[in-house]
């Protein structure tokens, strides 16, 4: 077992899957020679050559469109959108083509493609490099949306996504790339898509989160423990389809639920999680379901003070957790 970073886990997963399956190839902006702007694909160009690690033009629609075509041909493309903010030109390809291919062809065709996209803020990236885009894709049947939080889950879920027979939107939190480190086994393993994971056992409140804010919640839980409250923390890991069973189980455990995500609060994935709990286990609830998200203004103020105001942090999450625990 080695301690590696979140970004290293991605690199390892890509390398191992490309070794394992000749049909896997990478395409995206600067993924080849440069090894990616975040160095995610570093060393892969040297190892697998220009035919399996393709530098593309700055045209996201083309990146995904080429991927869909290749997938239809039997390949397993891993398309990188350099920043999730840039995914918008490719939405038609992802939503109307990739996600619908199996359904529209009555099962004759499928699209085993992964679209990787670094998302989220806190890196002083400004409005074009800080957005959370998951909510837009979380009501598209035919598409899976995965957003791991730890190196272990990252590696296991990326492998699962690559091996999946249908398209997966794979979201990587860019602030987590080098911030988050963790144990990852040397041997080959996968983490199943569609399964949430309890990251901390607790009795008093349930916090449901993913990505960067999950780590903040874990830190806040340590502080809350000193106040005498224990927090039960669930990592969603897959955002679409949601792991309903795990969500309801976690909600029932304490009857007090706080959903935390970095995305804007209104219309965020937290609303769906809250609705699910309200529908299924109202009579186990001991407090109103609470959500904590970013204020409903555009993500990524460039001004440092404003960015700090916009982004969640362990203190803000602690306050919300403490309030719910006290209730």
């Amino acid at each position: 077992m080695a301690v590696i970073s979140y970004i290293e886990a991605i690199n390892q997963a890509l390398r191992e899957e490309m070794d394992r399956d000749q049909k896997v190839f990478i395409l995206g902006e600067d993924v080849g020679l440069k090894g990616g702007v975040f160095k995610t694909t570093e060393g892969l160009y040297d190892r697998f050559g220009s035919e399996r690690v393709l530098d593309t033009p700055l045209a996201e629609s083309a990146i995904v469109g080429v991927g869909i075509g290749a997938a239809a041909y039997g390949f397993k493309p891993v398309a990188e959108i350099q920043f999730a903010d840039f995914i918008m030109p490719a939405v038609n390809q992802i939503v109307s083509e990739a996600a619908k291919m199996r359904y529209r062809s009555n099962g004759d065709w499928n699209c085993p493609m992964v679209v990787r996209a670094p998302y989220g803020g806190g890196v002083h990236g400004g409005p074009y490099h800080s957005q959370c885009i998951e909510a837009m894709f979380c009501n598209v049947p035919g598409l899976k949306v995965v957003a791991p939080s730890t190196p272990y889950d990252m590696k296991g879920l990326l492998k699962s996504s690559i091996r999946d027979d249908d398209p997966v939107l794979f979201l990587e939190h860019k602030r987590c790339y080098r911030l988050i480190k963790g144990d990852v086994p040397e041997k080959d393993y996968i983490v199943p898509i569609g399964k949430a994971d309890v990251k901390r056992e607790g009795e008093d409140i349930t916090v449901i989160s993913f990505g960067l804010t999950l780590h903040f919640a874990l830190q806040a839980a340590e502080r809350l423990a000193k106040d005498g409250y224990s927090a039960h923390i669930l990592d969603l890991r897959t955002l679409y389809p949601l792991d309903k069973e795990a969500i309801l189980e976690a909600a029932r455990k304490t009857g007090k639920v706080l959903i935390v995500h970095e995305d804007n609060k209104e219309g965020g994935i937290g609303g769906e999680v809250a609705a699910m709990i309200a529908e299924e286990c109202l009579f186990e609830l001991d407090a109103p379901i609470k959500r904590l998200g970013a204020p409903d203004v555009p993500a990524g103020p460039f001004n440092g003070v404003m960015e700090k105001f916009y982004m969640l942090n362990p203190d803000k999450i602690y306050e919300a957790m403490r309030e719910l625990a006290d209730f």
């Binding site: 186990e284 001991d286 109103p288």
Partner: peptide
């Protein structure tokens, strides 16, 4: 939240 649930006699569904 405090105001809405201040009354002692207001019970949550689980309670």
């Amino acid at each position: 939240m405090k105001q809405e649930h201040g009354a002692k006699q207001r019970y949550s569904p689980s309670v």
